[in-house]
């Protein structure tokens, strides 16, 4: 089914001290796919993403991006290879202006051509970001920050975007805006791995969804399983 894999994670183990956070996770994201990763808090979803980005070092297993292993590479190199992460909590630079935040997004770009075109595209995608470009990022609302964080990540021209709980703490209408933008981003050719706690939306939205719990991948669902609540609940709480 997965023709050309963008990201391949095989038997990934991550520990914090002696506490295991991810245990033997194996998953694949094909080029151009949107893949969801759902599970309760502490399931190891964020840790998996941080391991992909080289922020935490795995204790075992392999991570490959477009065929080449990226374990042990420094984060800034992984970014330049075409991977981007929008972390949980957005992490916009509150003291900087929106524009400065966007300029930081340009740092990880492989080349500086086509910046203007991308800027235009992003302004179309997230009009609020353009509207408030002179404002301090700390003054933005949660939804605006989320849009800024995604916009910033896009400016690095990633071929694959990891998003950690983009809907967290957002009003439903803003969630819709964000997910609509994600659909648009995917159509532009960017592969997406989406970590969410809102399982139902995610399963419905993504091509495929992995369910993770206690550091272990439990099962894989497709969009047609969105209404199969029983299976989801089982996966969340079953042992």
């Amino acid at each position: 089914m997965v023709a050309e894999p963008a990201l391949e994670i095989d038997s990934l183990d991550v520990r914090y001290g002696v506490v295991p956070a991810v245990r033997g996770a194996t998953l694949t994201v094909g080029r151009g796919e949107i893949v969801g990763l759902v599970g309760p808090t502490g399931a190891g979803k964020s840790t998996t993403m941080l391991a992909v980005m080289g922020v935490v070092a795995p204790a075992g297993g392999t991570i490959r991006f477009e065929g080449s292993s990226i374990v042990g590479r420094p984060t800034e190199r992984i970014v330049r290879m075409g991977l981007g992460l929008v972390p949980e909590g957005r992490h916009v630079f509150e003291a900087l202006t929106v524009e400065e935040n966007l300029r930081l997004g340009l740092i990880g770009r492989p080349d500086q051509s086509g910046v203007e075109r991308d800027m235009e595209w992003i302004h179309g995608l997230f009009p609020v970001v353009y509207e408030f470009r002179r404002r301090q990022a700390g003054l933005l609302s949660g939804g605006q920050r989320q849009q800024l964080a995604i916009a910033r990540a896009l400016l690095a021209r990633p071929r694959m975007l990891l998003l950690d709980e983009p809907s967290l703490g957002l009003a439903p209408i803003v969630v819709d805006t964000v997910f609509a933008a994600l659909g648009e981003i995917r159509r532009s050719g960017v592969t997406i791995l989406l970590v969410e706690q809102r399982a139902q939306i995610t399963v419905g939205f993504a091509d495929r969804t992995y369910v993770m719990s206690n550091g272990i991948l439990k099962m894989e669902l497709t969009a047609t399983d969105a209404d199969a609540t029983d299976r989801l609940v089982d996966a969340y709480f079953g042992s």
């Binding site: 991550v14 520990r15 914090y16 001290g17 002696v18 956070a21 840790t47 391991a51 922020v55 935490v56 070092a57 795995p58 204790a59 984060t75 509150e94 003291a95």
Partner: peptide, 16 residues
């Protein structure tokens, strides 16, 4: 030498 997972940066408090 196999160190457990550790963040590589300093624990950065959000200050300007």
């Amino acid at each position: 030498r196999h160190r457990p997972a550790r963040s590589e940066g300093p624990p950065a408090p959000r200050t300007d």
